[in-house]
Design a binder for these strands. Sequence first.
DNA 1: CCAAAAACTTGCCGAACCGGAATACTTGCC
DNA 2: GGCAAGTATTCCGGTTCGGCAAGTTTTTGG
Lengths: 206, 206
Amino acid sequence: MDDGTAPGLRERKKQETRDALSWAVIRLSVERGWDNVSVEDVAAAANVSVRTFRNYFSGKAEAVVSRHTERMFRFADELRGRPAGEPLDQAVKNATLARMAPPEATGDQTPSREWTDGVRLMLAEPDVQGEFLRAMAAAQAELATVVAERTGTDVGRDLYPSLVAAATGAAVSTAMEHWLRADPPVPFGPLVREALDRLWAGLPVP
Amino acid sequence: MDDGTAPGLRERKKQETRDALSWAVIRLSVERGWDNVSVEDVAAAANVSVRTFRNYFSGKAEAVVSRHTERMFRFADELRGRPAGEPLDQAVKNATLARMAPPEATGDQTPSREWTDGVRLMLAEPDVQGEFLRAMAAAQAELATVVAERTGTDVGRDLYPSLVAAATGAAVSTAMEHWLRADPPVPFGPLVREALDRLWAGLPVP
DNA sequence: CCAAAAACTTGCCGAACCGGAATACTTGCC
DNA sequence: GGCAAGTATTCCGGTTCGGCAAGTTTTTGG
C-alpha cells in the first residue's frame, strides 16, 4: 500500500520547511493575533524568504490548515484500506475513529487556557474558516471516489458516493466544531461517533 | 412575518448597486476569464468607484456568490415559516423545494453553450468555491437555530441541530454539484429531493 | 565519482488588493 | 428649508500576489 522507498533528502527537507512554516503561522498568530502577523514575519520565523513561503502556501490561512488537510487525506486512505466485507457505515466509522481520534492523542498535557483561547480566536478568522472548508471539500472528493470503489457506483453518474462523502464530512465538521466550543473540554472520539451514528440512523429526532 | 413597510429609496438603490456589481463580476468573468477581470473593471462596469465595490464585497468571489447566499437565507426563513406540526424531515424537504427549486425557474430559455461553459469555469475557480462554502456555512448556522427551535434542542449543548443543518447543507451542495456537472442538463428539483430522501433514510447502499 | 538535469530557493518588481481616514454628496425626517 | 444619518468618493500607504531570471542543491545516469 505505501510507497516503501525512503522519502529521500529532498522530500524530507520540503516537509520540514512545510511544517516549520505552518507552525510559525500558528504560533505567531496565537500569540499576537491574526492581523498582527505578516507573511514576512512568518517567513523570517521559519528562516526562508517570503517568496518561498508563497511557493508552499497561497496564504497564511492555507498554512494553518495544512495539517488538517493532510489528516483528512490519510483518513480517505484508511478507508480505502478497510476490509472489503465491512459494511460501509462501519468502515467509515472505524476509519474516522482510527485517523481522527487516535487513542494516544491524549498524550500531551492539557495546554494553557491562553493557548486554547488563542487557537479558538485564530480558527474563528474568516480566512481560516474558508480554508478549512476548502480542505474538507477536497478531502470529500477523494472520499467519494473511495466510496464509489467500495459500492460499485459511479461518482460521475450516481448521487450516492458524493452524498455519503459530503454527509460524512458534515458529521466530522460538526463534531469538530462542537468539540472546539466545548468548555470544559470533552474527548473527541465519542462526539464524532455520535454524529456518525445519528447520521446513519437517518437523523431521528432525539 | 415580513416587514410590510416598503423598502424606501435608499435601500432600493443599495440593492441595485449590489446587483449591478454582482452581475458585472459574473458577466465579465464568464466572457474574459476570472483572472482577466480586475476589481477596477468591475467597478467601472457598474459605474461606482473601486472603493465602493469594497464596501459591498470583500472580493470578486463574494460578489459572485452573493445571490446564492441570499437564497440560502431565504430558505432558512422558509423553514421557520413551516407549520409546527410538520415532521422535521418533511419541513426541510418542502422548504428546500420551495426556495431552491421553484417550478417557475424553468422560465428563461436555455442559455448558450458558451455561457454555461463560462459559468462552469468560473465556479471551478478556487476562490469562488471557497466563498461558496462559506455561504453554505453561514446559512447552516442559521438553519441550525431554526432546527433547534422546532425540536426544542439547544444549539450550544446538543449535537443534533447542527448535525441536521450540516447534513442538509451537504445534501443540497451535492445535488447542486451534480446538477452543474450534468450534461445534458437535468432538472434540479428531483436531484435535491433524492439527496434529501436518501439522507433521511440513513444512507442505505443503493 | 562526476557532470548534466531536475527541482528548489531567492531577489526583484510591477500590478493588484486592502482598508483607514477625511471629504462631499444623498436620503430621511421634522 | 435644514439638520442628522447614511453612503459614495478620493486619497493613500501598506500588503499581497505571482511571473521571471538568476543562483543553489539534490538527484540521476553513466
